[in-house]
Design a protein around this nucleic acid. Sequence first.
DNA 1: GTTAATATGTCAAACGTTTAACATAATAAT
DNA 2: ATTATTATGTTAAACGTTTGACATATTAAC
Lengths: 326, 326
Amino acid sequence: MGIKLTDVAKKAGVSATTVSRVINNYGYLSQKTIDKVHKAMEELNYQPNSMARSLQGKNTQLIGLIFPTVSHPFFGELAAKIESSLFEKGYKTILCDSANNKEKERDYLKMLAANKVDGIIAGAHNLDIPEYGNVGLPIISFDRYLAEGIPIVSSDSYQGGRLATEQLYQRGGRKIAIFTGTNESASPTNRRLNGYLSVLKEHHLEPMVYHFPPEYSPFLKATEIRQILSKEEIDSVFCTDDLTAILVINKAQELGLEIPEQLKVIGYDGTEFVQNYFPQLSTVLQPMDQFVDLLIDLLMKRINNAEVELDNLYQLSVKFIQGQTS
Amino acid sequence: MGIKLTDVAKKAGVSATTVSRVINNYGYLSQKTIDKVHKAMEELNYQPNSMARSLQGKNTQLIGLIFPTVSHPFFGELAAKIESSLFEKGYKTILCDSANNKEKERDYLKMLAANKVDGIIAGAHNLDIPEYGNVGLPIISFDRYLAEGIPIVSSDSYQGGRLATEQLYQRGGRKIAIFTGTNESASPTNRRLNGYLSVLKEHHLEPMVYHFPPEYSPFLKATEIRQILSKEEIDSVFCTDDLTAILVINKAQELGLEIPEQLKVIGYDGTEFVQNYFPQLSTVLQPMDQFVDLLIDLLMKRINNAEVELDNLYQLSVKFIQGQTS
DNA sequence: GTTAATATGTCAAACGTTTAACATAATAAT
DNA sequence: ATTATTATGTTAAACGTTTGACATATTAAC
């Protein structure tokens, strides 16, 4: 098929070993030879066959990325930033959208192993996948418990939950509801709820907790939100993600509720996207860039030394962003 | 390292060849042996080494996806759907965000070749990358001219441009501006502008064309939009993407302009995201699912037969969605 | 002019799988 | 009982690269 190492050797008038030495930079080499070989590689547009290299035990420079879906702005941004940062380090990214599908996630895990990726960053939301425990690859998790010994990077959700709820209270909210996902006790995301509950308790307020299953379509969710808003007496909502907050605002407007006078809304995530296109939203900003840096930093550590000791949980602090919805 | 074919053979009490026969399903095999081998593979959690397989000339089942960035909802959705559809066909997706960076796109092209992907779907926006012409891989392009012989899948942008502009006119717009990207004459996207121009000409109206370079941040773009809206006499804007339309709406609200009474706005794309979270926006719906099906269908054709004759351009028709902004 | 250091070459094994060629069993068909 | 068919095994080469062992040539150092 393509150009191979021996073609380069022939063209440069050297041995195959010498070409390999140039590529892998070992042994004695004169500058003249190095230049000659590089020139030949350029002229032939030679690319070493990754397959053959990694058969030899070389790294594939591939990283698997397992997220629910990049069509969600939060994960889209996270994936884009991770991809970009990895690229700068010479890694390529295999994208795995688990789509809240346990089977798919499992299949992907197998595939990534078969493709001998150097490591995995996983942030999907399907629970109980024991395979994570024994893939035998460096894995770092985002915002979710996977298995013993796999470090988790997340925002300080408890603090974030408190922060948002406290803000609603400060602004006069007394009937403060929380709209969140399904109960996932093992994952840090759930701590947003705990933060909310702790603040309500301190102020002796009655919690109003609404769970929305992740498989709900936005339309279905919006419909249910509308019902809740029209039926229940609520003056404030803490949504554990920005998109839900946007639905709440849309439905509140449909119902003629003044924001923030009649209904205060605070979201969670603070993606660049939402900040750019919904600047009015009050939200809790997750430190996206720090996530990316830390995830990759930890992963690189594990790749370079599988036995390195890492913490179980890294919690990055969040920041409240005051918009006009609270 | 891991479990290999010979381990499976030993465990199942058969020869390596037999295991290979089971995996690749050729030659004579008894059901008993097949079961025995499968059982051994399961028990050992065996995954054939993809590297070794593709060294043998087997397909890698890898597809490269080159898009500007998945942090943009349009490309995020497109990427997610393509990934999902490819997964069902047994392919894995290597994600390449070109980030409007020509060098990165070039590097990625090389990497994809080195990784022996079976094919590429490219929808980035950097022009003049001659390498596309001679990667020697099946490539299908989305919405952009890459090189001679590479089919383009796009929406019927000319029709879309006409549709949106005509709608604005019908609703009473007489000072109709267009907000679009930088002039890229070779790409189909530019035809949205041409559609706009043709309608204005028919109605003897003066075109008002504003170009925004793709490297502009949303903030910068928003600032400029605000200036334009406050200075110029405009009663309607056709934005060639939804996100720009959202910026226009936000800035118009800041300026106290009533929508649609004082300013009508129509976007372009109609992603599920925008439909879910900005349902009020009038827009031109691109047939996302048809894009995905066609892109993959064409790519598969090229993969299975490199010489297959394909059209240069596939234009899918768009649909106007009436919201409350026009 | 000897010695050491540097530079390149030859050769072959290895990575894990596929597959062709050939051999031999086991089973079924006549 | 002979023959054909089906099932499995043995062996070895191949994919493209890396790397160690060893040999030899060139250059530099004293």
